[in-house]
Design a protein around this nucleic acid. Structure first.
Length: 764
DNA sequence: TTGGGGCGACTTCAT
DNA sequence: GTCGCCCCAA
């Protein structure tokens, strides 16, 4: 028997050994929670619990796979029988088994976000609403939000508060759109991501026999990353655990970063209420084994600024480690270069591998500068997320063929492939088919399969050809495995040929991508872990992939990882670079405008910091391209919020005194303006009573916003406030418009730490 | 029905 | 800088 107990600390052991009854594990970053979860499951199995009766919900499918392997090392192959995966994948599986009960068939399609939006676009159009008022993104957001709160279409329409809210947003018909959307999904035998959870709730609500079955089946329920579950997910776990009351949740309120998709920190509080405060065993894992003292304490200094948090103090017995380095760059490209050379240097000095490094950013769009810079110094990297493989057009096209072959009611797949490759079936014909289908209350397939009865003329011949094609594909489903069917479809549909004939570089890449998809299907079929090898099973597995699940590059895994902070959750790296620490980017302006939740942004920063084991470097740029336009940036308030004693402030790296105004690579040497320097100096003396900074400050020489002389500025300048070390100055420009500039100084207000002419924008 | 040019909106994060 | 939509010619 493997001894895994003796290596644990006291609270870890308590959590592992806890037998029956509700358990809440508050696990700080790096406190070994994956170990605890793993050993807890192993411990249950060793004590006679049947693996089939354990349900463990993880954040990514990859995490589930890794945990399964670790459990396997302790208890053997039995571990394969544990029900483990993301909420979406586990309940999609259950919904397929129980589909009939809620009027679906087990081959239902899963609509991704693009499918949902495309369907909404057509509904808005069909209802004769203005698509400039009813923007798909906001419509989709509202519907999704409602589903996550378990509000169905009828309830939505009848809810006075929601109605009032929609009216004040000038979109009074969202409820009707929602209702139509739900009907159309149902008619297409399709569920979107939110439906997987919503319909699971419906299933358990309306079919007590089925609920009963699963309640008794799952003797133990475990939920990881509990702080990121939404109401819909919460209720599912509560119902499932209602009989045995054996539910263990693991979470960290400080790492809750998914409120934007309905996650609710309140769930942690609800947990104690629902199971009875006196019944819930609470374990706090507060010792961090991952990071240096500097990193842990700097992270604490950030998170302590949040008002909403549970009582918890994360500490470490690790060494102090180096201070946090701050890199200042003049532009986004410069930031890429400085980070690449910092990594190069660290690699040499400390003989580290590429995979000891990660570059974390707030938005996917930021990856470009780092890719270019890393390529230039021949450092290997991989990007997680962004435009993933499965979002590429050619991949989605083939997948749509596969989906439609499995489920002919799938309207979105139909719309995608009916005229692909071109067969002379235009929008008018497709619309006609939709109308007839709606009139006859049939699916489009019923019309298409019998087209000569409904439509005459040349397009009907083309449609007959299409119908025959699909019928021939359908025949293969039961005879061949997923790979054979997919290869046949790729060829017979003409998709492969069309790409093959395209001899451009892009065309070649697309052809290879399709081949790559076929390879992936082959691997799926050959993988002994997959019980079912049908095309439907494959589609299910790809539609629920998370970004972290993406396939790793073959062979060479020694790469620097580039990803968003969201995607980095649960991971750790020796050296971490957090980049783009600029006001409006991180914290994100979008977030502050839409939900005004600075605390969530701060938690996101906390998550980023705590990914680092040994060395943390943060960086920012003074200018950045945005929509192809040069934009001035100011350093993020988060830099000021870190307790300054953890920053290597004296060693602030200054960017070379030039900027790259041209994209992407040509740098124009440009000297800094002396006028701006004197402006900075006079301001610095007035506001912070200190000396001018030693760094050079650059600005756009041609910009009409940029100050040109000290005199020009002295007239209107006035410090408005100095919170978080910021000072705001107003002035009038040549047109007499009032503009404002921001300066920054450190929290003690004695020494000027950073200065910039950030974003001189109009003050209305 | 198809394809190209012009135009506006758009970008957070993600199952 | 990129995607999707609209309009018009072929």
């Amino acid at each position: 028997m493997v001894d895994y107990i003796s290596g644990l600390n006291e609270p870890q052991r308590e959590a592992v050994m806890h037998g029956n009854g509700p358990l809440m594990i508050i696990a700080g970053a790096g406190s070994g929670k994956t170990r605890v979860l793993t050993y807890r499951i192993a411990h249950l199995i060793e004590n006679g619990v049947d693996p089939f009766r354990i349900l463990s919900l993880t954040f990514t499918n990859k995490a589930a796979g890794e945990m399964r392997h670790r459990i396997e090392k302790v208890v053997g192959t039995e571990a394969r029988n544990i029900w483990m995966g993301t909420f979406h994948s586990v309940f999609a599986k259950i919904l397929r088994i129980e589909a009939k009960a809620i009027g679906y068939t087990s081959n239902f399609s899963i609509y991704d976000t693009d499918d949902s939006k495309s369907l909404l676009r057509s509904i808005v159009k069909e209802m004769g609403l203005d698509d400039k008022v009813y923007r798909v993104n906001s419509v989709f957001g509202r519907i999704s939000g409602a589903k996550n709160r378990l509000i169905g279409p009828e309830e939505y329409i009848n809810n006075v508060v929601i109605q009032a809210d929609d009216e004040s947003a000038r979109m009074p018909h969202i409820g009707r759109i929602y209702k139509q959307y739900a009907l159309r999904c149902f008619a297409a035998n399709a569920m979107d991501f939110d439906d997987l959870l919503f319909n699971t709730n419906v299933l358990f609500r309306d079919h007590l026999d089925i609920l009963n079955k699963y309640q008794h089946k799952f003797q133990h329920v475990m939920v990881d990353e509990f702080q990121d579950t939404n109401v819909s997910q919460y209720l599912i776990t509560r119902k499932l655990a209602a009989v045995h009351q054996n539910i263990a949740i693991v979470g960290d309120d400080a790492q809750s970063i998914y409120a934007f998709r309905g996650a609710n920190i309140e769930n942690i509080l609800n947990f104690q209420r629902d199971y009875g405060k006196e019944n819930v065993k609470i374990v706090k894992l507060e010792e961090n084994y991952r990071s240096t003292k500097t990193i842990v304490q700097a992270a604490n200094s950030i998170i302590s600024r949040n008002k909403n948090q549970l009582e918890k103090s994360v500490f470490t017995n690790n060494e102090d480690g180096p201070l946090i380095d701050v890199i200042k760059a003049s532009s986004d490209n410069e930031e890429g270069k400085l980070v690449a050379s910092a990594i190069f240097e660290a690699k040499m000095n400390e003989s580290l591998a590429n995979n000891d490094f990660a570059i974390l950013y707030r938005t996917n769009a930021q990856s470009r500068a780092f890719e270019e810079a890393l390529r230039k110094v021949s450092l290997k990297y991989r990007i997680i997320g962004g435009l993933s493989f499965y979002q590429r057009k050619e991949i989605k096209d083939l997948i749509a063929y596969l989906r439609f072959t499995v489920n002919q009611q799938d309207e979105e797949a139909f719309k995608r492939i009916i005229n692909l490759p071109k067969r002379g079936i235009g929008d008018t014909t497709v619309a006609k088919i939709s109308v007839i289908a709606a009139e006859k209350q049939d699916s489009v397939w019923e019309i298409v399969a019998d087209i000569s009865k409904h439509v005459a003329g040349r397009s009907s011949i083309a449609i007959e050809g299409f119908a025959d094609l699909i019928k021939s594909f359908k025949l293969l489903l039961d005879q061949k495995d997923a790979f054979e069917v997919a290869s046949h479809i790729a060829k017979a549909s003409g998709l492969l040929k069309e790409l093959y004939d395209d001899k451009t570089v892009e065309g070649l890449a697309r052809y290879e991508n399709v081949q790559e998809l076929l390879n992936a299907i082959k691997e799926f079929v050959d993988n002994p872990d997959n019980e079912e090898k049908s095309l439907g099973a494959f589609l299910q597995s790809v539609s629920l992939l998370t970004t972290a699940d993406e396939k790793e590059d073959d062979g060479d895994n020694d790469r620097i990882t580039l990803m968003t902070i969201h995607a980095a959750k649960g991971l750790e790296f020796k050296n971490v670079h957090i980049v783009g620490l600029e006001e409006d980017l991180f914290p994100s302006q979008m977030m502050l405008e839409s939900r005004n939740d600075l605390e969530e942004e701060r938690r996101l920063f906390y998550v980023a910091i705590t990914r680092a084991e040994k060395r943390l470097t943060i960086s920012y740029a003074e200018t950045r391209y945005h929509y192809g336009r040069l934009k001035m940036c100011e350093p993020s308030r988060f830099i000021m919020e870190i307790d300054q004693k953890y920053l290597k402030a004296s060693k602030l790296r200054s960017a070379p005194s030039r900027m790259d105004f041209d994209r992407p690579e040509r740098d124009k040497s440009e000297s800094t303006s002396t006028g701006s320097m004197s402006f900075v100096r006079s301001l610095a003396q007035k506001t912070a009573r200190s000396q001018a900074p030693q760094q050079k400050v650059s600005h756009t020489p041609s910009s009409d916003f940029a100050p040109t002389s000290t005199a020009d500025l002295a007239a209107g300048q006035r410090v408005e406030h100095a919170k978080f070390g910021f000072g705001v100055v107003k002035r009038l420009d040549v047109n007499g418009t009032e503009r404002k500039a921001t300066i920054h100084f450190d929290t003690e207000g004695e020494k000027v730490l950073l200065l910039s002419f950030a974003k001189l924008r109009v003050v209305v």
